[in-house]
């Protein structure tokens, strides 16, 4: 299982703050595509992906047990 955390706009679009994906291994790029097709998210293209609390690159591999966070453009401060 891969736990995917959602924030801000994305959280409201999906209607929950996390989703579980029954996947063993997937790249960052692929998981974005998968979430996009499953939930029709508006901001996924502009979003960053964090794996286990660190920013990841498009080709990085996510494995079962990892915690993924989809990070839309930030607006702190």
């Amino acid at each position: 299982m891969i736990e995917v955390l959602l924030f801000a706009q994305l959280q409201e679009e999906v209607g929950k703050d996390k989703v579980l994906l029954d996947i063993k291994e997937i790249t960052v790029k692929e998981i974005k595509y998968q979430l996009q097709s499953q939930f029709d998210l508006s901001q996924i293209e502009a979003s960053m992906v964090a794996v286990n609390e660190a920013y990841a690159l498009e080709d990085d591999i996510i494995r079962s047990g990892d915690t993924v966070a989809i990070i839309p453009p930030v607006s702190g401060g």
Partner: peptide
């Protein structure tokens, strides 16, 4: 403060008199 606006995962939602929106891309 400039770096906070680039890399820290925090988001703000504006509540206006006539609506609301998550702000990104400052």
């Amino acid at each position: 403060i400039e770096r906070i606006k680039q890399i820290v995962p925090i988001w703000k939602k504006e509540q206006w008199e006539d609506g609301e929106a998550w702000i990104g891309d400052q």
